[in-house]
Each structure stands twice: as structure tokens, then as C-alpha cells.
Design a protein around this nucleic acid. Structure first.
Lengths: 191, 191
DNA sequence: ATATTTGTACTGACCAGTCAGTTTATCAAC
DNA sequence: GTTGATAAACTGACTGGTCAGTACAAATAT
């Protein structure tokens, strides 16, 4: 099916150039398909992007959830989830940056809200995890939703730096830094 | 000078609509100035945006640096800096989101790199602060640059959520959550 | 005199989206 | 298994709107 070829091509072209700098003609070219075919499968550019983004984010959510292991302490669960998320981010680097960043800007409101909905589900998933940690007494997180949003940003910021200067910071260091921060904070001593 | 009026207007229009959805005519209208005047002062749209972004980020950097107080423990210094940064973010909310997010996407490479340079200076400033904390034995941060990048993302993520749902999360809660995380981490117990 | 500003009209590139038409699969009926 | 018919998939030249940037003569500061 050429619909898949289109999505694949769109992924790499969007990833390489960003939403606005990507022309429908580019995608058609990359997919080895006529421009009209794009519009046969998708109502328009925004919808194509939406399909791509939502499917990608769903995948991230699914993959991350499977990393959970209920037979393990909460802090360890958090570690597993972050580990998986960071790995996925690194693997689908360009695309990940679009999901986490480009969404904010420039898209028509209706399309954006769809994508934000999926993003919100990922955030809610993290928040819930933190909340459970609170209940089981393993964590002490005053505002889980806020913290979940922060975690995503934290992850994004670190991964982005690591991707920009791969020779300076490996994925392992990202995981290490993040975990250290989450578990014990930055300070040497507990007051 | 109408150059300032233009920058002011550009700030609010860019902030409201994002870079791509902002027309030069809009800015001219908002500034109460003829379109030609825009081009009298700035070579083009991208340059206008660049001027705005770099000046804004310079301001952030300057303001944040003045929040420092050398006669105070490092953890407290960190608190001061974050406090100031979060306050500024909240005050210039729309603009801040552009600085932190829109920059990544859609801009021509030459313009973007200018802005990224200023952003990098802010990041470097934070990294240096962390580094000093390490040396004085107050902090234990394995990779200051990485952590600094993460902190910016963390801050951005939390502030964004707080701005989207102001009734749910106040600026104070953002500061509180962030500090709690940075000082002690999420976990209840130290291993 | 020079620098700045205005107003309006214009140009030209760019690009999302269209559409009339062609090809390819599907499936019956003889 | 060939024919013919109907739909599904695909094509690519073309259109139309948008918008950055230009032109320029006249007005107004400085």
C-alpha cells in the first residue's frame, strides 16, 4: 500500500526539514508517488502530519507502557520507563524532536489539538505513575501532573543536547544524569 | 523611535500567532507604521525576528544574572536563579514559549544559529553555576552541561502546563515542584 | 539638506490543493 | 480464460491565493 510509503517518506522529510519547510511535492518525490496520490490518501498536509504524529506518539506510549514491570519497586519502574523513552527518543531522533517541539507552533488549531491530546495522554501516564508512587510511599511528588510535564521537558532538553553533540554526551549519560536527578536531586546533602 | 514600536508590536504579534502565521502587514498594522518602515529598519522578516529573539534572550540572561547573590549558599543561588527565570517566563509567557520552542523549527539556518548562540549562553551560564556548585561541594552533578539543558526543558515543560491551565497550577507551585525535585529528587528515601 | 516615514499599489515566487484523465485491480458473466 | 464493466488507485499539469519584499513620490520631522 502506498499509504504506508507516504507515511514513511513524510516521516523522514518532516523530520529533516520541519513542518513548514516541507513541501507536499517533497513528500511525493520521496515516496515515489505522484502528488495527487497524497491527496487521495490524506485530506491535506496538516492531516498527513497529524496521522504521522498521532501514530508515532501512540507507538511511544505503547512501547513505554510495555516497559513497565509491576513486580518491581516504583523507583525501578520509573527507571524502566525513562530508560525506554530515552532509547526511543534517540532512535527516532529527528521525529521525536518534531513530536516534542514542532507541535507547539504554526499548526492550525484543530490539527494541533488532536496531537496535543495524545501528548497529554503520555503526560497523564507519567503523572499516574508518579501518583501511584506517592500512594505506595515510594515517592513524594507534590504535583504529579506538573512534575510529569517537567519530566518530559527535562528528557527532551537532555536528549536534544546529546543528539546535537553526540561526541560529548551519550544516551547512557543522559539516563544516568536524569536518574540521578530524579532519585536524589542535585544537592549533596539532605537538609 | 519607531524601531522600538516595531519591536514591541512584533513581540506581541509573533507571540500571539507564531512566526509563520505572522504577516509583515500585521506587524506594521500593530505598530501603527507603514510597511515600508519595517524594511527601512530591518532587512526582512527573519532579521526582525532575530533581533527580537536575541534582544529578549539577552534580557533574560541579564535579568537572571542579577538575581545572583554571591553571599549565599549555592543551593540558595540556584533557587534565586530559577525563581527569577520562572517569574520572567510567566510574565512574558507567549514570548517565552517562542524563545524556547519555536526556535527549533522552520527558521532559515542562518537566523536560527544566531538565536541558538544566545540560548547556548544561557545554558552555559546554568552549567557554570552547577559546575561551581560541584567545586564548592554543595552539588553533585555528573554532567553539568547536560543537566543545564535538562533544567531548561524542565522549566519550560512545567511553565507551559501552568500557563495552559492557570487555575490548576500556579507559578508558586512550579517553583516549589522544581526546587523540591532539584534539591531532593522525587524519592522519599535516600538509598 | 538629510533622515525618516507614509501610503498605496505592484511584483513575483512559492506551494497547497484541484481535477480531468489514465492505469490497475476486482469480479462477475458468458 | 476471455470479455467487459465498475470501482479503486494513481498521475501530473495547472490554478489560485497568499505574502515577502519592492517602488516611489510625497510628506514630515531633525
Amino acid at each position: 500500500m502506498s499509504r504506508d510509503r507516504i507515511l514513511d517518506a513524510a516521516a523522514s522529510v518532516f523530520a529533516g526539514n520541519g513542518y513548514h519547510r516541507t513541501r507536499m511535492d517533497d513528500i511525493a518525490l520521496a515516496a515515489g508517488v505522484a502528488k495527487g496520490t497524497l491527496y487521495y490518501h490524506f485530506p491535506g498536509k496538516a492531516d498527513l502530519f497529524r496521522a504521522l504524529a498521532t501514530e508515532g506518539l501512540e507507538m511511544l506510549l505503547r512501547e513505554t507502557k510495555t516497559a513497565l514491570d509491576a513486580n518491581v519497586p516504583f523507583v525501578e519502574q520509573l527507571r524502566l520507563v525513562l530508560d525506554r523513552t530515552i532509547s526511543l527518543y534517540m532512535e527516532y531522533d529527528k521525529l521525536a524532536q518534531i513530536f516534542f517541539n514542532e507541535l507547539t507552533s504554526g499548526l492550525d488549531a484543530e490539527v494541533r489539538s488532536d496531537i496535543e491530546a495524545v501528548q497529554a495522554r503520555f503526560q497523564a501516564f507519567l503523572a499516574e505513575l508518579l501518583q501511584e508512587g506517592n500512594q505506595y510511599g515510594s515517592l513524594k511528588v507534590p504535583y504529579p501532573a506538573l512534575t510529569a510535564a517537567g519530566l518530559i521537558g527535562l528528557l527532551d532538553g537532555m536528549c536534544r543536547l546529546s543528539l546535537r553533540y553526540p561526541e560529548k554526551h551519550t544516551a547512557e549519560q543522559v539516563k544516568e544524569s536524569m536518574l540521578a536527578l530524579l532519585i536524589g536531586g542535585l544537592a549533596v546533602e539532605r537538609k
